[in-house]
Amino acid sequence: MPTRISAERWEQLYRLEFARVYRALLAVLRDPDRALDAIQDAFVAGLRRPPAEDDDLAGWLFVVAVRSGRRGFGRSLLRLDHARSRVSKDEIAASLDRMEVGRLLAGLTERQRAMVVAQFYLGLDHREIARHFGVKTGTVSATLAQAKARMRAEVRNAS
């Protein structure tokens, strides 16, 4: 039986993983307020039902936040304190467009972006991505293959 982590430990681990997961969410959602809302929702979800200590916590936070980001789309007007990030959505979009990675990701669907970022930035393998996203490994492989094909085409078009 895996041990569940305490609230204090959860907060500590969340702070440890925040930068990486938040940046991964920026790459997927391309919106700092949505990314912040999503990762905070994942933190609250972890307080309610903490993952096991030996889980890949960055992967867990990322996927819960991506799901929350998707559900929360269009809900931002209900937020009491949105626009809390110092950097605007346009600035983040401009930063990503200047990056090679940002341009490659821009041509993908949000789901493809999430899996690509999970693999190449967070370092998850296909099996871990499948487990976190609740899909079969074959689905992950197919989604990533499509995404890579599209990114290769983008590289060919750019060169």
Partner: peptide
């Protein structure tokens, strides 16, 4: 490239 570029994104 992912590490280098995404690590340059600003944090709140």
């Amino acid at each position: 490239v992912f590490q280098r570029e995404l690590d340059s994104l600003p944090l709140p």
